[in-house]
């Protein structure tokens, strides 16, 4: 576990991306941003992250493809929190099978989102 609490936010919607980043920064988290799955993989190559917040619907490489690619990558991998606008159970189940640690359905409540992120970033605190 790294000492930095770095979050990789993978979201193609600029508006939502900026707002989510502001949310996370307000909690003292360090946020890096990627606009699609391919960019996110490059970011992972460049540095370490404590959590990946991933949108499923993205151009070039969608969330599922990113999760599969991530699973195929050797070494320790950060947990992934999936944000999905799809409400069907199959999408959430599929994301979990692809390796997502948690799935949140949009629109998420701000407090719940922050609590979920923090629980994934600092699991020890939750257990404590």
């Amino acid at each position: 576990m790294t000492e930095y609490r770095r979050i990789l936010l993978v979201e193609d919607d600029p508006l939502l991306s900026e707002l989510l980043e502001m949310c996370l920064v307000a909690e003292g988290l360090d946020v890096d941003h990627a606009g699609d799955g391919l960019a996110a993989l490059r970011k992972l190559d460049e540095g370490e992250f404590n959590l990946i917040v991933l949108d499923l619907m993205m151009p070039f490489m969608d969330g599922f493809a990113f999760l599969k690619q991530l699973a195929a990558t050797p070494g320790e991998k950060p947990p992934v929190l999936v944000l999905s606008a799809n409400t069907d159970a199959q999408t959430a189940e599929r994301a979990r099978k692809c390796g997502a640690a948690a799935v949140a359905r949009k629109p998420v409540n701000h407090e719940e989102f922050v609590a979920l992120v923090l629980s994934l970033v600092e699991p020890g605190q939750d257990e404590a």
Binding site: D13, L15, L16, L19, L20, M22, C23, M57, A85, N86, T87, R105, K106, P107, V108, N109, H110
Partner: peptide
């Protein structure tokens, strides 16, 4: 439906 959820998410967060 997905688009609206994104929009509502944005409004709520903002």
């Amino acid at each position: 439906d997905a688009q609206l959820r994104n929009d509502l998410e944005a409004i709520g967060l903002a």
